Simulated assay, not measured.
Amino acid sequence: MYDRRQASAEFIQKLLAKSPMPRNQVAVISGLSNTYIRDLEQGIIANVAREKLIALAVALNLDLGETDKMLNIFDRAPLALQDIPIFLATAEKGTITSALLPVRDRYSLDLMMLAAERLPGHHVVVSSEPTVCLRAPGHRLHSERLLAKTHLIYGELVEAIGRERLKVMENNLEQHQVEQYICKKCLEDYLRLCEDPVEKAWRVQHVQNVLSCLDRFPKWKFLLTNSCPTFSFVLKTPDPATGESDKLLITRLAPHRFQGTRTGKLTGFTTDNQVIIQNFKEELRGLAGAVHQQYLDRSNLLDYLDILIKG
């Protein structure tokens, strides 16, 4: 009879061999020790805690179906809604390394975002639409409904991560500045070019949430630019007291990204490599020069967003 421990060891060996990361980087991202992962490779550990398997799956960029396969190999039940808090906890234990690491699933990128956002400090978002943190509950369930069909927990998982990211952002704004750079034309297209009336209603609410955030948090800066950036990215500069280095998350998602299934496709990259980050800081200096000066006046910005919402 084929030994289950041998099967699990071979499974982990194949995953690590396929991963672009060495074991020590997988350990850093997952929050598991290098020794623990080596023991998994060798089949030394017979009884592996569910939360450790899920943390390892996130670090290895496994989609939810592949995570179910790992759980089965280790004689664990498939993912269920009760596992969502375990996914959120992985963002507390893991960290971003100096390697330029690919992220292949949207939920994995969200968890990496959450890990960076949980570090107190200055936060910059560069994208073609308002930050996902400000989406209303239920928006992602609609927008990513095709992805939600790929796994029973996907929709609720991304909604839960979104709620946590919003809470973390609001906590951060009490002490630190958060900026979003967004092309004015892209923002207008986000509302005006949407042909799905249900999605458009969600997007209007999304921009209304930007208005609400501007009203409640003086440290929230929504900066309209007259040109599109080359990349969408998030740059986190942690408070020096954390002892953490700057973190960068790069992503470029097409506007029609939710019209098909994207599970397993390349979604973005993460790194705390300071040479790479310096190049993106220079990109930010260029964006700062492209900001529409009239909308630096908060009242002008609020009036513009109000008119945009009303169509």
Rank of each mutant, 00 (worst) to 15 (best):
P238V: 12
W220Y: 15
T263A: 15
A241F: 02
R257E: 08
E244V: 12
T251G: 01
K265H: 10
W220Q: 10
T261N: 12
L224P: 01
F231S: 12
F233W: 01
L235E: 03
Q259F: 12
F231L: 08
N226L: 07
P229D: 10
D239E: 09
T230E: 15
H256A: 14
G260H: 14
W220A: 11
K247W: 03
R252P: 00
D246Q: 07
A241E: 10
R262S: 12
C228N: 06
D239L: 06
N226V: 10
A241Y: 01
A241M: 05
T225E: 00
K236P: 00
T267W: 00
S245W: 04
Q259C: 09
G264F: 09
T267M: 05
L266W: 05
T261D: 09
L266I: 14
F233C: 02
R257I: 14
L248R: 06
P255L: 09
L248W: 07
L249E: 06
S245L: 14
A241H: 02
P255Q: 09
T242F: 09
S245Y: 08
W220F: 15
S245A: 15
T230C: 13
N226Q: 12
F258T: 14
V234Y: 08
W220N: 07
Q259T: 14
D239F: 03
G264L: 04
S245T: 14
P238D: 01
N226A: 10
T242M: 04
A254E: 06
T251W: 04
K221V: 00
T263L: 14
Q259Y: 11
L248C: 05
L253C: 01
D239A: 08
G260P: 02
P238G: 06
F233G: 01
G264W: 04
K221R: 15
G264N: 07
I250V: 15
A254G: 04
T263G: 13
T263K: 12
F258E: 10
T237I: 08
K236R: 11
T261F: 02
F231W: 15
W220K: 05
C228A: 12
T230S: 15
K265D: 12
P240Y: 13
R252E: 10
S245F: 10
H256Q: 13
T230P: 01
V234Q: 06
C228W: 00
C228F: 04
L266T: 07
R262G: 14
S232V: 03
D246V: 01
S232M: 11
N226S: 13
F231G: 03
A254W: 06
T237V: 05
F222M: 07
D239N: 07
D239W: 03
G260R: 15
